[in-house]
């Protein structure tokens, strides 16, 4: 079953009188449980594609269907509701809230979902243990290393049991060891929970984890052997 369907999606940014076509008629289906890498050089449209899938932005034209729901006509609040129940995000720069502890950062999406106290606490500790951060639960981001912060971000993304996790260059600011650790955790969670992972990267060490690779070049999916289905495993 497709959890993500993009139909002829175009995104044009207009700055002054200059138009930049970030995506140019992209169509893409991603099935439940996939572990997909969006690859391509800088400016190829990877982040834009993730933002559209994540309902953080709306396409100029085309359709974005998430879990069977057409999202382009949704208003700001409807998109926020869809995000908090369906989509988890992991950003490049360990995007944690600096005033909250690791525990509180993971707890935040659960609070937004209105999950009750005891259940919430159990879930947060389970996730922190899953990313091996339980002993650092009450540390604030500035007391954690980059790798630790990104592990907390992964735990946070998973907290509401989302259908999919979208990760934008999740290892870009990590050293090899930490990058590998984060990818190992994501791959493991994908296998164990069946959560769909889509991540943008141009790091070959990360691409090797992907069971499917989608290559973007100049806002188009590269159909030259490295296209939509390239790298797809059985």
């Amino acid at each position: 079953m497709s959890v993500i369907q993009l139909e002829n999606v175009t995104k044009i940014y207009t700055i002054g009188e200059v138009e930049t076509r970030a995506l140019d008629g992209v169509s893409l289906n991603i099935e439940e449980g996939e572990f997909t890498a969006l690859v391509g050089p800088s400016g190829s449209g990877k982040t834009t594609l993730l933002q559209l899938i994540g309902c953080l932005d709306r396409p100029t034209s085309g359709q974005v269907v998430i879990n069977g729901k057409e999202t382009t006509k949704l208003n700001r609040n409807q998109r926020a509701d869809l995000r908090k129940g369906t989509i988890g995000f992991v950003f490049q720069f360990f995007a944690l809230i600096p005033t909250l502890t690791a525990y509180e950062n993971v707890e935040m999406p659960l609070l937004l979902n209105g999950q009750s106290g005891a259940e919430r606490k159990k879930r947060v500790m389970e996730l922190l243990e899953a990313v091996d951060m339980a002993d650092r639960a009450h540390h604030r981001p500035d007391q954690l290393s980059g790798g630790e912060q990104q592990r907390v971000a992964v735990a946070r993304a998973l907290s509401t049991n989302p259908t999919m996790i979208l990760a934008d260059e999740p290892t870009a600011n990590l050293d090899t060891e930490n990058g590998q650790q984060v990818m190992d955790i994501m791959a493991k969670l994908n296998k164990e929970t069946g959560t769909t992972f889509v991540f943008a990267t141009h790091d070959p060490r990360v691409i090797k984890y992907a069971r499917r690779v989608v290559t973007l070049v100049d806002g188009l999916i590269d159909a030259n052997g490295k296209g939509q289905n390239a790298g797809k495993t059985a």
Partner: peptide
């Protein structure tokens, strides 16, 4: 940046 993160997590305006 934090406003963006919170919004991405589903926090409403």
């Amino acid at each position: 940046r934090e406003i963006g993160i919170l919004a991405a997590l589903g926090m409403k305006g």
